[in-house]
Design a binder for these strands. Structure first.
Length: 646
RNA sequence: GCUGGUGUAGCUCAGUGGUAGAGCAGCGGUUUCGUAAACCGCAGGUCGUCGGUUCAAGUCCGACCACCAGCUCCA
């Protein structure tokens, strides 16, 4: 028998018989490790524990704490679920069933049957039963023709369609119990490793993600090696629901969505407006320091303007239909602010001395989102962009990109938000989606990347995520339910200057084309506030809190003093409310705690005599008494600093 | 847009074909109170909308609207 050399993660090497399995190696190290092992990484590929290793290899044992281990665990769980479905619904056809970030899903075709909650419970019960039988997952390699034969016999057209792509290759199948699936692997050694099972939901999903294809039923589930972890996960899900901005927005009276106004058209209530305006004020100050100039443009514009920009044909489907006048003129509700700003740029000859010109507007735009797409404040049909366009000479471009990325980062830092940054490139295989010359694109993508590397930006690249006129830097954040939303964006545009014939006179006396940067650090104020609500769970930092403090007299007897305190704070611009209701202080405290107001100021005999307030902080309780003046100065300072903590 | 689910008072929810209910919030009164819910009373509804079945519909059927989950899309 030949020997092979195995290299462990710590660099140690050891010889084994050829054909040894990962599990055997693990057992050789320790029993405990063998028990915890879920899969192995062999030369960078994740393999089954039982798969024989036939040549020298680097080797790592994957446990639950490794991503690769979780993948194998959840992927195997998906197979277990498929087995349960096949037992309960004979003749079920299977699509794909991968592991995902949190758990797994499997796409099914059950003919006419729609799965109910009861069905999901039955599937979960059956999975528990099948898992407890602890049967092994067995890998089998077949010739392509034999695999096709197998699934033909089974009548699984989806698997046959998948097989089409692997023509001529060796195909791996996995068996466990009565179930066999087309699968690359890897899998757990046996079903018994799967201990705690929860089927979460069922939803429709198009076969292969194409809306022209049949809609299948997708079952989502998650599993864990023990019940405690499952319970913790389910608890976190509940917590996330408590943070949901739609729920908090209604409870805290921040915004209103009503079909009487229209789907996806939020109304900002007084308290939500305070948050929105605080954000605008913050960004205005930062932009003023950076040489931006404010402009204001109307909500509709001549349709021809959008034909010039090229937006009209490209995005016809996601615009509200034009407003057609009898004269033949047509107007479009503006889907974006750029063309208006280009008009302002081109109103007179521009000199290189004027550049860069930075035009900023909180511009409300309207887009016809598909009816199933609306989602609280994060996906709406009318929203306000913190938009700006920077017109600069080419030799100024990189400095301007850098400055806009840094401004965007300052914004997210101010809120303590964890963002992921994507360089969004065009897809070279699908060029009809994009405008402009290929050379411009290559140049713009190169320039963005150079700046990103210069400032050591932590980014990933998204092919096909560019806008139609240029590549972008996108800033993405996740909401309470783990859905990713794009917030800020910085985009380089060589196309619009051409389309609008934008020019400046250079030092050489000749006409030149400027380059445009489109940028919006918040992206949309609606979406940003939605994400902020969830980010802070409604407990805003003082500078954003709609109500910063409430004055609570202990009884009517101290109303006069309470009014004094209230006025002193109100006159300093602090957002304070007076609770003059005829209620006990315990009741008032409970009420203001549920409203998530940062400070409650209890006043009674003691406070009145000493010119004091008794400070109670949200969630932290009684903080003792201070002079009214001292409290006022302290919180004014905190507000001014836009501090994240109190 | 597609698939599935949901829609009863401001909010959370009960109500399985026979006279629409509870708690909280609101309003009126009593109480004058010290750090998360005092007490008594009152009011509040075209049961999402429209149509159908039935002697009778919140309840059964259909269409539409909105919301929720997911898919597709996203300048």
């Amino acid at each position: 028998m030949n020997k092979i050399k195995i290299t462990f993660p710590d660099g140690n090497q050891k010889e084994f018989e050829q054909g040894i399995t990962g599990l055997k190696i693990a057992e050789g190290i320790s029993k405990g490790l063998a028990k915890e092992a879920l899969a192995v990484e062999v030369n960078g590929e994740v393999w089954d524990l039982n798969r024989p290793i036939n040549q020298d290899a680097s080797f790592k044992i994957l446990k639950w704490s490794d991503d690769g281990g979780k993948d194998a665990y959840w992927h195997s769980s998906a197979h277990l679920m498929a087995e349960a479905v096949e037992v309960l619904f004979p003749g079920a056809k299977f699509g794909i069933g991968p592991a995902i970030e949190n758990g797994f899903y499997y796409d099914l075709d059950l003919g006419d049957h729609s799965l109910t909650k009861e069905d999901l419970q039955k599937i979960e019960d059956k999975m528990n039963e099948l898992a407890s039988r602890d049967v092994p997952f067995v890998r089998e390699e077949k010739k392509w023709e034999d695999a096709v034969e197998f699934f033909k016999k089974k009548g699984d057209q989806y698997k046959l369609e998948l097989l089409d792509e692997f023509k001529g290759q060796t195909i791996s199948l996995y068996h466990h119990g009565s179930f066999t699936d087309l699968c690359r692997g890897p899998h757990l050694p046996s079903t018994g490793k799967i201990k705690a099972i929860k089927i979460l939901s069922v939803a429709g999903a198009y076969w292969r993600g194409n809306e022209k294809n049949k809609m299948m039923q997708r079952i989502y589930g998650i599993t864990f090696p023990n019940k405690k972890e499952l319970d913790e996960y389910l608890f976190r899900l509940e917590e996330a629901k408590r943070r949901d901005h739609r729920k908090l927005g209604a409870e805290m009276e921040l915004f209103l969505l009503t079909p009487k106004v229209g789907s996806g058209l939020p109304l900002w209530l007084p308290k939500g407006t305070i948050i929105r305006e605080s954000l605008i004020q913050f960004l205005k100050e930062e932009q003023y320091k950076r040489g931006y100039q404010g402009v204001v443009t109307p909500h509709i514009a001549n349709l021809d303007l959008y034909k010039t920009s090229g937006h009209y044909p490209y995005y016809k489907d996601s615009q509200f239909p034009p407003i057609q006048l009898e004269s033949g003129e047509a107007f479009l509700l503006k889907p974006m602010n750029c063309p208006h700003h280009h008009m302002i740029y081109s109103m007179k000859p521009r000199s290189y001395r004027d550049l860069p010109i930075r035009l900023a507007e909180y511009g409300t735009v309207y887009r016809y989102e598909q009816s199933g797409e609306m989602n609280g404040l994060t996906r709406v049909r009318g929203f306000t962009q913190d938009d700006a366009h920077i017109y600069c000479a080419h030799d100024q471009l990189k400095a301007e990109i850098k400055a806009t990325i840094e401004l965007t980062q300052l914004v997210f830092r101010t809120f303590g938000m964890d963002v992921k940054t994507r360089l969004s490139y065009r897809d070279d295989k699908n060029t009809e989606k994009y405008g402009g010359e290929a050379a411009f694109w290559d140049q713009a993508q190169r320039e963005i990347k150079e700046v990103a590397d210069d400032i050591k930006l932590d980014y990933f690249i998204g092919i096909g995520e560019a806008s139609f006129y240029g590549p972008k830097v996108d800033f993405m954040v996740k909401d309470a339910l783990n859905r990713t939303w794009q917030l800020g964006t910085v985009q380089v545009d060589y196309v619009m200057p051409e389309r609008f014939q934008l020019e400046y006179i250079g030092q050489d006396g000749q006409k030149h084309r400027p380059v445009i940067i489109h940028r919006a650090p918040f992206g949309s104020l609606e979406r940003f506030v939605g994400i902020l609500i969830e980010h802070f769970a409604g407990e805003f930092p003082l500078w954003l809190a709609p109500t910063q403090a409430a004055v609570l007299p202990v009884s009517d007897v101290f109303l006069d003093y309470a009014r004094e305190v209230f006025s002193a704070l109100k006159e300093s611009g602090i957002r304070v409310e007076l609770d003059d209701r005829n209620e006990k202080v315990g009741y008032k405290i409970r009420d203001w705690e549920t409203k998530k107001v940062p400070f409650m100021l209890v006043v009674g005999e003691k406070e009145k005599n000493g010119g004091l307030v008794s400070v109670r902080q949200h969630k932290k309780g009684d903080q003792g008494t201070v002079k009214v003046e001292e409290f006022r100065e302290r919180i004014l300072e905190n507000i001014k600093a836009r501090s994240l903590t109190i």
